[in-house]
Design a protein around this nucleic acid. Sequence first.
DNA 1: AGTTTTGATGAAAACGTTTACGTTCCGCCG
DNA 2: CGGCGGAACGTAAACGTTTTCATCAAAACT
Lengths: 349, 349
Amino acid sequence: MTTKKATIKDVAREAKVSIASVSRVLNGLGGVTAETQDAVRKAAAKLHYVPDNAARSLITGRTHTIGAVLPDLFGEFFSELIRGIDLAARARGLHLLVSSSHDGVEDAAAAVRTMRGRVDGMIILSQFVDGAFLDQNVPSDLPVVLLDSPVDNPRFPAINLDNIAGAQAMVKHLLDTGHQTVAFVTGPAGNYDAQEREKGYRAAMGQFAPTSPLNIVTGDFTEESGYRAGRALLAQATRPRAVFAANDMMAVGCLYAFKEAGIRVPQDIALAGFDDILIARYVTPSLSTVSVSIAELGKSALLLLTELMEGKGHPDGPHIRTLRCDVVARESCGAQQTNVAPKHPPALV
Amino acid sequence: MTTKKATIKDVAREAKVSIASVSRVLNGLGGVTAETQDAVRKAAAKLHYVPDNAARSLITGRTHTIGAVLPDLFGEFFSELIRGIDLAARARGLHLLVSSSHDGVEDAAAAVRTMRGRVDGMIILSQFVDGAFLDQNVPSDLPVVLLDSPVDNPRFPAINLDNIAGAQAMVKHLLDTGHQTVAFVTGPAGNYDAQEREKGYRAAMGQFAPTSPLNIVTGDFTEESGYRAGRALLAQATRPRAVFAANDMMAVGCLYAFKEAGIRVPQDIALAGFDDILIARYVTPSLSTVSVSIAELGKSALLLLTELMEGKGHPDGPHIRTLRCDVVARESCGAQQTNVAPKHPPALV
DNA sequence: AGTTTTGATGAAAACGTTTACGTTCCGCCG
DNA sequence: CGGCGGAACGTAAACGTTTTCATCAAAACT
């Protein structure tokens, strides 16, 4: 590739046809004889012609790119999510523009605004978006799919995790395994997932252990907050029989607090997390948790988005969908015996 | 945002000026009186005007987007890498277009080609790129930074990890700790990092333990291959005193093979990996490894790329740079006593 | 043979910007 | 007072496509 850059005109001249014919051939529109096709393809190959995307976008109004707005890229959750989105996107010939790391509503708004005109649709996961935010920052004709969002608006379909059911199931599992008292470690206040999981805990306790008091300590999804929560729980007058943390990293933090104090898991206290991150399998004892297929979440979001983009104003089905979560019983909850070899990483979607 | 979409013409009409003046005001070019500025800004705000990026790109030839071509998005390495790139990019007002999951040279070529015209520069990490590939698929005027690549071409500066030195240091550390015989588990054949790490192992053994025979079993960076390698090592007539795996996931695989066989780590056999992924801190015993600051790698790549993009044909400094790797001694190599609380995740860059 | 249909092709408009180049107007200096 | 320079602003070209429409030849009818 030594020459400057070939345009469609150069190809047309080389092939001795008009630029319209070149366009037709290269876009497979038909209405061209086999010879011209050949000539055009030869010329294009010879000149290493690659169409200019900006010009194409300008006239067609499509970019073949979708945007992903995320709060951060750190941690397995987002990594898996992007992977799921990317895989599904490239299967459809779409590109992926990522934007992350906004810690305020202004940041998020800027991110969304600057994507305007660069993408054909967006997938947004942010605790800062609500109805007003969307109305203000999203052009009316831009398809958007929300992830893990409380927004209930048919114009902005959402895909959520079934956090409530998942948390309920885990609490029930802990109770069924024989742990009479279950404490809960919360996530950050603004986080929708965290709120839902707490709801699930409350609901399950009310339903399956109405006589047992609620026992809630606060955390913020970080390992360190889990560690502090673990120490706080151990300091209580009557130590709970089981601890359910709103995510795995906090559960791991608890685990280290317990180890440090010489408390055995699960014999002295049972432990469970939420997310089923990779680490959950590798800590000792392996961590019982609630599994959410994150890559699947990303894939579903992209599928829904493409449906929206393909014209059908609103896709079939409800505008809020939930993805089920499953209890994964490992060693830390006491329902499973030690198994030494962890499962391998999940296969590609 | 209810109206269709406002163009620069609409703003001009609303402000009763020409489109040229609107452009001047909005791009801060000067040569406009204060009143016109006001009028234009008011009109733009009123119409919710946002410039069309496609049109702008078409005429300016810049997209303010950089592309990242990666083999996959799975695992902590790529997650961290993207994060490092993204953070540095958005600090400079650049967008990030990712493209991943190519398992063949054709895939990679397609990825690079389809990015043409969409990005102002690219960061490429792929075992499939070599000099010929780049010549064939990269336009001559597109700045590119290579990551972990053996390509030695001033036109394509590269940033590599100092795999050789890191591996050498780890082998030396294992020998110094008193383990006379060190076995090595290789990575996939085509992987540059893997090759370099093996070189480091060979060099260190030759230099520091010339009488000890090399002991190399093959792996492919997956946990499962590490597990198999671990079993193979145990089946040897004289079991090595230490095992150095070319990455952490394989080391974890080894660890489970050893646990399964009732072999204690590090008492019966020492173990070390490479990469310092998050899991390394959480397995029991915690895994000694070689740490590479991956986010830093991404950040450096982006910085170098922006230097290239800003005109200076070739940035200062050598066209191949290496990032140092550091030995992290934890429990599994026997040089460190048990410490129960793992370090917290690395802070944001 | 004359008329219509069909299918391939080319000319030119359109997309929304940036920017080179004119034009106008004003103040200033000779 | 005439000419000149510069600031403010407008006109129009250019960027590289897609797409509509017209053209034209050949094939298909009547």
